Simulated scan of single mutants.
Amino acid sequence: MEKMKFYTEEEIMDKHIGKKGTLARDKFEEDLQSFLIGEAIKKARQSKNLTQEELGNLIGVQRAQISRIESGKNLTLSTLARIFKAMGISAKLEIDNLGKVALW
């Protein structure tokens, strides 16, 4: 029986997207983080039984903008703050030795 080689996620990413620190890899990871944040916003909105249009009305944007945000596009810290405030979600970051820092 032939011995199978197993690859780590890192090895696969390096081969198919690029090594860490390269432009392609940095862009991929940035897009992935935006997508994941967008998905979290979508799940939070749905858990509050809000439509995209209703959330848009709460923060003063069109439904189409909420759709783009949930797909990871047009995502800024300012918009995140408005969305989280509108849905009553607190945002805290843990920054190394500073401890937890509230964004609002």
Results as ranks from 00 to 15, higher is better:
Ala81Ile: 15
Glu54Asn: 00
Leu32Gln: 15
Arg45His: 12
Arg63Pro: 00
Glu54Lys: 01
Leu23Ser: 07
Ile66Thr: 02
Ala44Pro: 08
Leu80Val: 07
Lys27Cys: 04
Gln62Leu: 15
Arg82Leu: 15
Ile69Met: 08
Ser78Arg: 10
Glu10Ile: 04
Asn57Ile: 01
Lys20Thr: 04
Lys85Leu: 09
Arg63Ile: 00
Met4Lys: 15
Lys27Ala: 10
Gln65Thr: 14
Lys48Met: 12
Trp104Phe: 15
Ala91Arg: 15
Ala40Val: 04
Lys19Pro: 06
Val101Ala: 00
Asn57Met: 08
Arg45Lys: 12
Ile83His: 10
Leu75Gln: 06
Gly18Ile: 02
Glu94Arg: 09
Phe84Leu: 08
Phe28Tyr: 12
Ala40Pro: 14
Ile12Arg: 12
Glu9Gln: 15
Arg25Cys: 07
Lys48Tyr: 09
Ala64Phe: 08
Phe6Thr: 14
Leu55Gly: 01
Gly56Asp: 03
Asn97Phe: 04
Ala91Leu: 04
Ser47Phe: 02
Val101Met: 02
Phe84Met: 13
Gln65Gly: 01
Ile17Leu: 11
Glu94Gly: 02
Leu93Pro: 05
Val61Ala: 03
Lys5Tyr: 08
Thr51Cys: 02
Ala44Arg: 11
Gly72Asp: 02
Gly72Trp: 00
Leu55Arg: 09
Arg68Tyr: 03
Gln52Ile: 00
Phe84Gly: 00
Leu55Tyr: 14
Phe28Met: 09
Lys100Gly: 01
Leu23Ala: 08
Arg25Val: 05
Ala64Lys: 06
Met87Leu: 07
Gly72Thr: 00
Met4Cys: 12
Tyr7Asn: 11
Glu53Ser: 01
Phe35Val: 06
Glu30His: 12
Trp104Arg: 12
Arg45Asn: 07
Asp14Asn: 14
Trp104Asp: 05
Glu39Val: 08
Ser47Gln: 14
Lys73Ser: 08
Ile17Asn: 04
Met13Glu: 12
Gly21Met: 13
Glu29Leu: 15
Val61Leu: 04
Glu29Trp: 03
Lys42Ile: 01
Glu2Pro: 04
Arg45Ser: 06
Ser90Lys: 11
Glu94Ala: 00
Arg68Gln: 06
Gly38Asn: 14
Lys3Cys: 11
Lys73Ile: 08
Glu30Ile: 04
Gly38Lys: 03
Ser71Thr: 03
Ser90Phe: 13
Ile41Gly: 06
Ser34Val: 00
Ala91Pro: 12
Glu11Val: 07
Arg25Ala: 13
Leu98Thr: 00
Asn57Ser: 13
Leu80Ser: 01
Gly21His: 12
Ile12Pro: 06
Gln33Trp: 02
Phe35Pro: 02
Lys73Phe: 04
Arg45Thr: 06
Leu23Tyr: 10
Leu80Ile: 07
Glu54Gln: 15
Ala24Asp: 14
Ile41Trp: 13
Asp31Arg: 06
Thr8Ile: 02
Lys19Tyr: 14
Glu39Pro: 08
Lys19Val: 04
Lys73Leu: 09
Leu50Asp: 05
Glu70Ala: 04
Glu94Met: 07
Gln62Lys: 15
Gln46Met: 05
Lys15His: 05
Thr51Val: 03
His16Asp: 11
Ile69Leu: 13
Asn74Leu: 01
Gln33Pro: 00
Gly88Lys: 02
Phe28Ser: 03
Phe84Arg: 04
Asp26Met: 09
Ala40Arg: 14
Glu30Ala: 05
Ile95Asp: 06
Ala102Leu: 09
